[in-house]
């Protein structure tokens, strides 16, 4: 096994572990909403987008039609446009041939891991990481739908923290290195809190506005670092 493959599994296992409980929750909720096993499976297998799958279930229950739900999904997932824009500057030459596959697996957590990996991203690394994420999401969904009723409620509730912990754990090495990163993270979180409280933007757009504003402000601070890297 090459170092690249080992690194990819090392990075992929935590995503798998974080996704299983979140997907179990999705499986349980789907069953509770009365959708079929096949539909529940397809949600995870074809859409593969955590937050919007949960939101879709909520909206289905409120009786919203497919048009409204699809529009909401677009709004909620539009943040991935910005994430892919970043990743597209990072993938290696060979990996570029596989953008149609790679794009499918750009989730928040995959993006977060990829963005802090040093150097160009190889197709091996990206695919192993995305497959770990995908298999965790699918197996959790299936488990949740089938076994949901048997798991203690308090356990499934506590699993809700897993994805947040995953994001924080991915972020910590970056935070340790740079005070600027700490400031940007907290500023982004505060801005998001304010925007949600103001309640003027549709679901998912508060995050997009935060990324646009905070990354614009941040770009003035990191411009020097970028130059350093170019010079290396």
């Amino acid at each position: 096994m090459t170092k690249e493959v080992q690194d990819a599994f090392k990075a992929g296992i935590p995503i798998f572990i974080g996704y299983v409980p979140a997907a179990i929750a999705f499986g349980i909720l789907s069953k509770g909403c009365g959708i079929t096993f096949l539909e529940c499976f397809l949600f995870s297998a074809v859409v593969f987008a955590g937050a919007s799958q949960f939101i879709a279930l909520n909206l289905l229950m409120t009786g919203m039609g497919p048009g409204g739900i699809i529009l909401t999904t677009l709004l909620v997932n539009f943040r991935h446009f910005l994430m892919s824009a970043y990743l597209s500057t990072r993938i290696g030459r060979i990996a570029r041939k596989y953008i149609f596959l790679i794009a499918f697996g750009v989730t928040d957590e995959v993006f977060s891991v990829l963005s802090f990996k040093k150097g160009q991203l190889s197709k091996t690394f990206v695919f192993i990481l995305q497959l770990s994420a995908y298999s965790g999401w699918i197996s959790g969904t299936v488990t949740g739908y089938i076994m949901g009723g048997f798991l203690p409620e308090i356990l499934t509730k506590s699993m809700g923290v897993a994805l947040y912990a995953l994001l924080l754990a991915i972020l910590l090495p970056e935070i340790k290195k740079s005070t600027k990163a700490v400031i940007l993270v907290i500023a982004s979180g505060l801005l998001n809190t304010i925007l949600i409280k103001l309640d003027i933007l549709p679901d998912g757009w508060t995050i997009i506005v935060c990324i646009l504003i905070i990354a614009s402000v941040g770009s003035f601070f990191v411009a020097d670092d970028v130059q350093e890297e170019v010079c290396e």
Partner: peptide, 13 residues
């Protein structure tokens, strides 16, 4: 370059 940090901050908080 700033997108990751900004995104993760807003995803958590």
């Amino acid at each position: 370059k700033c997108i990751p940090v900004a995104a993760i901050g807003a995803l958590i908080i």
